[in-house]
């Protein structure tokens, strides 16, 4: 569906722009608990950089850089980080996602333990949102034919 563009301006501009978009997405995820932003917005920005790769180059090139299998692993890795943070709190004797108790295993006081708990939640949410958005975009762009799109 998406044919490779032979336009040097678009390719060069996207090659320059994509690292900065991804750096901004990581900034939004990492600063999510202290300022506007967070895992959802940062994940969407990271997914938008992948969409830009598909638009500037073509689909096989984009899949060569970020394969479907790796995307599926990321998709469950974020949920794993989120759930594991919650379960760690549960195993240490507090409620689910009650981060303050994490100071028993982290060498910090409860306030900073809350800080790091929220940070790991944001990272998990960001990874999953990025993977799901990329998966949705690939589904839409190939019409549901995942791996056949590589052979075209």
């Amino acid at each position: 569906m998406i044919t490779p563009l032979e336009n040097i301006i678009i390719k060069t501009l996207c090659r320059l722009l994509i690292p900065f978009i991804q750096l901004f997405g990581l900034y939004v995820i990492v600063h999510g608990h202290g300022s506007p932003g967070g895992g959802f917005q940062g994940g969407c920005i990271l997914a938008a950089s992948f969409v830009l790769v598909v638009v500037a180059f073509d689909l096989p090139e984009a899949k060569r850089r970020f394969s479907e299998k790796l995307n599926n692993i990321f998709c469950s890795l974020g949920v794993f980080i989120y759930a594991w943070t919650g379960w760690m709190c549960l195993l240490l004797g507090a409620n689910f996602l009650d981060y303050g108790i994490l100071n028993k295993i982290l060498p910090v006081n409860p306030v900073m333990a809350r800080y790091y708990g929220m940070f790991s939640i944001e990272v998990g949410v960001g990874i999953t949102v990025m993977a799901i958005m990329v998966s949705l975009f690939l589904d839409l762009v190939t019409g549901g034919k995942h791996e056949e799109a590589l052979d075209e």
Partner: peptide, 26 residues
């Protein structure tokens, strides 16, 4: 409402427009 505005810019104007364009193509 800066957080809502940020979400709207990232999701509404960024990703969902790309999704709609991909859907219009097929």
């Amino acid at each position: 409402a800066v957080d809502v505005a940020f979400t709207e810019a990232a999701v509404g104007a960024g990703v969902s427009t790309a999704f709609f364009i991909a859907a219009v193509f097929v």
